[in-house]
């Protein structure tokens, strides 16, 4: 779970708190700056270097939260978010994915979610199906994301607004049933999560419905 600034302040020691204060100040400064020409294609603003080092200064358990706070504080635009994702380790990419819905990006960052959903790294898949995907993925891509979770063992609790989006989705129901049949034919267990999702699709859609 991502922690708030207040919760982090309570959990971090003095040195880590001081580091976080400075990092957030740098990020806030970047938010007010006009980031145009860069010296080199490889140069990064200082807060982005802080983004990489967050785990070492605030502890691996807090890295997601700290990185997320930095993105929010910097009001990271699409260019920064894309660079941090594309140039990031798996952990850095995960923090981007977990924060997308809290940045003013509308649907422009969808290519990052789509990239993560192509990955076989389950940590990325799990982070990709959060609130941002729930709000912006089209029905086809969203259904495939759910199926991918079942395929790769990502628990469906990771899928934001699952009940809402699955409700009355006959196409998802068909895909889930086909997948279950394939598993059964292969003599393998059908994941318990699949049954749960299938049950959700059987609930009549809330009226009036509009596919978003």
């Amino acid at each position: 779970m991502l922690r708030s600034r207040k919760e982090l302040d309570a959990e971090l020691d003095g040195a880590a708190r001081a580091w976080l204060d400075e990092a957030l100040a740098e990020a806030a400064h970047a938010a007010t700056e006009d980031v145009t020409a860069e010296a080199s294609p490889y140069a990064s603003p200082p807060w982005e270097l802080r983004y990489a080092a967050a785990g070492r200064h605030c502890g691996p358990a807090h890295a997601d939260s700290v990185r997320s706070l930095l993105l929010i504080e910097a009001r990271a635009p699409l260019s920064s978010v894309t660079r941090l994702y594309e140039q990031g380790t798996a952990a850095e990419r995960r923090a981007v994915l977990l924060t997308l819905h809290r940045l003013a990006l509308d649907s422009t960052a969808l290519p990052l979610v789509e990239d993560a959903l192509r990955a076989n790294d389950t940590r990325l898949v799990a982070a990709a199906v959060g609130p941002y995907a729930a709000a912006h993925l089209d029905p086809h891509a969203w259904r495939h994301a759910v199926l991918k979770c079942l395929f790769t063992g990502v628990p469906l609790t990771a899928v934001a607004r699952l009940d809402e989006r699955a409700r009355g989705d006959a196409e998802l129901a068909r895909m889930l049933s086909d997948f279950a049949a394939e598993r059964t034919a292969a003599g393998r267990d059908v994941p318990a999560d699949l049954r749960t999702a299938l049950t959700l699709t059987e609930i009549a859609p809330a009226a009036p419905t509009e596919e978003s």
Binding site: Y42, A52, R56, T89, E92
Partner: peptide
Amino acid sequence: DALPRYLVKDS
């Protein structure tokens, strides 16, 4: 020229 941004990574 690009190594500095990689050398800050955790692992």
